[in-house]
Amino acid sequence: MQFDQVLQYALSGLSTGAIYALIGIGFSIIYNATGIINFAQGEFVMLGGMLTLFFLELLKVPIWGAIPCAIAVSTVAGLLFERLAIRPLRQPTPINLVIITIGGSILIRGLAMLLWGKDTHALPPFSGDEPIAIGGATILPQHLWILGITIVIIAINKFYFYHTISGKAMRACAYNRRAAGLVGIDVRRMVLFSFIISSAMGAVAGIIVAPLTMVAYDMGVMLGLKGFCAAIIGGMSSGIATVVGGLLLGVLESLGAGLISSGYKDAIAFIILLLLLFLRPQGLFGKPESERV
C-alpha cells in the first residue's frame, strides 16, 4: 500500500465528508429548536443545485448572481414549509412531524421533477477544473471551495449561536422549550428561524457540491441520508461534533472503498457506526446522563 494512495483516499473522503457535515448541521439546527428530524433537508440541497442551474441556464443570470438568488428562493421555500406544514399541526408528536417532513420531501421532489424535468445536468465549477497536486494526491479547486465555505459557515454559526441575542435564544429553546417560553422567548419564531437557517445552509451545500456531483431532481435523497447520519454521529450538535461526524463518515467510506471493498463501502461505514453506538449508546460525543422520569 502506498502513501500517496492513502493520502488520496483521505482527501477524497474529507471533501465528501465536508458536504455531509454541512447537510448534517442543517438537520441539527432544526432538531435542536424543534425536536423534528427534518427528512426534507436533502430536498433543500437539491433546490440549491437545481435553482442555481435554473437561474444560470434558463434565465441567463451570471453565476455570482445566480447563487444568491438560488439561496434566497430555497430559503423562502423553507420558510413556507414551516408556515404551511409544520406550524398548523394540531398534534405535533415527533412521529407525526417525521411523516409531515417525509410528505414534504416527496412533494418538493415532485414539483422539481415537474418544473425542471428528470434529466441530470452539469454545472460549471467556480474556478476552473485544473487539478491541484498535494504530495502525490490530487484535488480540484472546487474541493477547496467546499472545504473553505464549510469552515466559513461553521464560523458564522458559532458566532450566531454564542454572540447574538437570537442565537442565544435558539440555544435556550434547544435546552428547554418551555423554560425558554417562560423567560419571554418567542419559541414559534425560533422554530421559523431554524427552518430558515437550515434551508439556506442546505441550499449552500447543494450549490457548492453541484459542479462535482451534477444536479438532478432526486439528488437530495442520498445526500440527505448521509447528512442525517453525520448529524447523529455528532450527537445532533450544531457545531464541531457534527462536522467531525460528517468527515468521519466521508473518510470511512473512501478508505473502505479503496482498501477493503468498493461494493461494501457503505456497509463498512455503517457497521463501524453501529459498533460505536453499541459501545456508547449515548452518542459518540455525548456524556452519559441520568434518565429523567
Binding site: Q5, Q8, G13, T16, S254, L255, S262
Partner: peptide
C-alpha cells in the same frame, strides 16, 4: 457522487 477512491486503486 465521488469515485476517486476506486480510481485511485
Amino acid at each position: 457522487t465521488d469515485m476517486t477512491a476506486q480510481l485511485t486503486k
